[in-house]
Every structure is written in structure tokens, then in C-alpha cells.
């Protein structure tokens, strides 16, 4: 029994040690996903979401990541060091100050990307209403629209033809495109909840209804969103089309 505890203790130490080295070992060029902080509501209902997603990205793709969680306000001068922002929440939040909206508009117009994730798991949640209010102020001439299944987000790494999440509140993603580039994506399905796992590797939240496959599709969508931000419409280049179309014809998972 002592030997068992010794071995178990060593293994635990090793796992914990490896994770802390990985967390601290990010290079300046590694992908970092800052979380947007805001006033009111709850800006971090899924604290493990980004770390978990980045771990999956590192495990599955060639992208080098920095798993160290970072959070910042839109007004932070450093925000333009990170062209990808994640904004989660599960409750109504205060309207963004006009200056912050101006910065965010500039951020998105000139090359940045924002992924907004409704973690409430409810239809027409207070967070969703606040997000939509913010977006209508941000881009009054460019309303939020459904993202088509033909969009590169559905093929930037995995071939997907469904939108998953911890819950499936909406069967689609919404977004805003500027000059042919999607700059903002909104999920109503609590993707962060599906991604989150603790340091021991256990899932933090159960997915509703779909089980393992649903969670895997949510992770794949997370990977695809990051890949889209990094490569844009690369997968729509002519060189990829014949193979991708053939695979999409054969593969029709749900």
C-alpha cells in the first residue's frame, strides 16, 4: 500500500510539475488568447475554458500556444499585441464605454478577431441581450448574421457541418464580416463549458444531450475558430477544394 501511495504521489507530482512548466514556458510568438474583462455581470464563468482549448490546440495542431491565462480590458494599450480575444459571460453586463467601443471597432476593423461565448446555456439570455446591444452600437450598419456552413470556419482544420457546444441553444453561429473577413463570432452554446477541464483532466461540466461526440465537436469548432483567425480563408484556396469537397461529400457527421 505504501508503494502504491508513493507511486501515485510521484505521478501526481510529475503531472503537476509538467503542467506548471508548460504554463510558464510560453514564447513571445506563441498563440495567446486573452479574455476580455468588463464591468457588471460575470466575465469569467468558465475559468478553465481557454487553458483547456489551448491545450487541445497544442495537442492537435502545429500551433504553438501560451496557456498562461491572460485577461485584459479593451482599453488596455497591450490589447493590440493579441489579435484574438475571447469574451465569455452568463449574465447581463454594463454597456461598454464609448471609448472602449471605439477601440474595439478599430481593433476589429484593422485585423483583430473576437469570439463571444454565451456560457449561460439559455435561450435569449441576459448576456446575449447585452452582447447584441453592444454589437448594434459597435456596427450599426452591419447587423449580426448567421454564419453559413460554407464559411471557412467549418473547414479551417476539421470538416464540420454542425454547431455544437455544452448545450445546443442555437444550431448555428452568428458573426459579422468586414471586407470579406469575419471579425466577430458569437456562440450561444457555451463552447467554453464544453472545453473546460480541470488540471487532472476531468471535464468541468457535463454536455447536455449529446455526450462525448457533442463535446468533441465543440472542441473541434474551437480549434477551427482559432485556425480561421490565423489563416483566414486559406482553406478556400483552389488547391484544397477538390479534396475538401470530396471528403465533405462522403462525410456527413452529426
Amino acid at each position: 500500500m505504501r508503494i502504491f501511495f508513493f507511486i501515485f504521489g510521484c505521478a501526481f507530482f510529475f503531472v503537476a510539475e509538467v503542467q506548471s512548466v508548460e504554463a510558464a514556458g510560453g514564447s513571445y510568438s506563441d498563440l495567446t488568447l486573452p479574455r476580455v474583462m468588463y464591468r457588471g455581470g460575470n466575465d469569467n464563468p468558465r475559468p478553465e475554458a481557454l487553458r483547456s482549448l489551448l491545450a487541445e490546440v497544442a495537442r492537435r495542431t502545429s500551433v504553438e500556444v501560451n496557456r498562461e491565462p491572460i485577461a485584459m480590458n479593451i482599453s488596455d494599450p497591450e490589447v493590440f499585441r493579441y489579435p484574438f480575444l475571447y469574451m465569455g459571460g452568463d449574465a447581463a453586463f454594463d454597456s461598454f464605454p464609448a471609448d472602449d467601443l471605439k477601440i474595439l471597432r478599430r481593433y476589429l476593423n484593422y485585423g483583430g478577431f473576437l469570439f463571444i461565448d454565451d456560457n449561460s446555456g439559455r435561450v435569449d439570455s441576459a448576456f446575449s441581450a447585452a452582447v447584441r446591444g453592444m454589437i448594434s452600437t459597435l456596427f450599426p450598419q452591419n447587423p449580426l448574421g448567421k454564419i453559413s456552413r460554407e464559411h471557412s470556419i467549418f473547414r479551417s482544420f476539421y470538416l464540420l457541418n454542425a454547431v455544437s457546444g455544452r448545450t445546443i441553444v442555437k444550431s448555428y453561429l452568428e458573426g459579422i464580416s468586414i471586407k470579406g473577413r469575419t471579425v466577430l463570432v458569437v456562440s450561444s452554446n457555451d463552447h467554453g463549458g464544453a472545453w473546460s477541464r480541470n488540471k487532472l483532466g476531468h471535464w468541468n461540466y457535463d454536455v447536455l444531450a449529446g455526450g462525448y461526440r457533442q463535446r468533441q465537436l465543440a472542441i473541434r469548432m474551437g480549434v477551427n475558430i482559432i485556425m480561421y483567425a490565423l489563416t483566414l480563408d486559406y482553406k478556400k484556396d483552389m488547391v484544397h477544394l477538390p479534396i475538401i469537397l470530396e471528403r465533405m461529400r462522403r462525410y456527413n457527421p452529426r
Partner: peptide, 17 residues
């Protein structure tokens, strides 16, 4: 290069782009 040889994509090739 989206995937290196050591990466575990957790999906068959047919589900990858």
C-alpha cells in the same frame, strides 16, 4: 503546415480538411 507528425488530431483523416 497545420499538423505535425506528432500531433494527435483525435479524428480520422476523412474528418480533416
Amino acid at each position: 503546415i497545420l499538423r505535425n507528425l506528432g500531433d494527435d488530431v483525435q479524428a480520422p483523416v476523412s474528418e480533416l480538411s
